[in-house]
Amino acid sequence: MKHLVLAAACLLVPLPALATQIDLSTETCEEFLASDKTEMMLTLAWLDAYYKDVDAPPVIDTDSFVENAGKLGEYCARNPTIGLITATDKLFGE
């Protein structure tokens, strides 16, 4: 019951304004690194799910998530003009 109340309360908290769409196919590493924390976390969560195997269990490994976010941040800092999806394909694609 406490979890349900907490989840409902989170829905009532106003979120910072976000772009109505985040087009990852055109976003560069520089734009990703310049995005606000909320947008960056949404993008990282989406990317984490995108690069999981189809049959992978619905589990978020926070250690792996943080490690991969760090790898992406370092790569993007060194390659600001590269496309974000190009960078993630290079780092996490097969």
Rank of each mutant, 00 (worst) to 15 (best):
A8E: 11
A8S: 13
A8K: 06
A9Q: 12
A9W: 11
C10Y: 10
L12S: 10
L12D: 02
L12T: 08
L12P: 04
L12E: 07
V13H: 00
V13N: 01
P16S: 10
L18E: 09
A19Q: 08
Q21W: 07
Q21F: 10
D23I: 01
D23P: 01
L24E: 01
L24R: 04
S25Y: 05
S25W: 02
T26C: 03
T26F: 02
E27T: 06
T28S: 14
T28G: 04
C29H: 02
E30M: 01
E30G: 06
E30V: 02
E30H: 02
E30R: 05
F32W: 05
F32P: 01
A34Q: 11
A34T: 03
S35M: 04
S35Y: 01
D36P: 04
K37I: 08
T38R: 13
E39F: 02
M40N: 00
L42G: 09
T43C: 07
A45I: 12
A45E: 12
D48M: 07
D48E: 13
Y50G: 00
Y51P: 05
K52V: 00
D53R: 09
D55I: 01
A56V: 05
P57W: 00
P57K: 07
P58R: 14
I60D: 08
T62L: 12
D63L: 08
V66Y: 00
V66T: 12
N68Q: 15
N68H: 14
A69R: 10
A69E: 15
G70M: 13
E74Q: 15
E74F: 15
E74G: 15
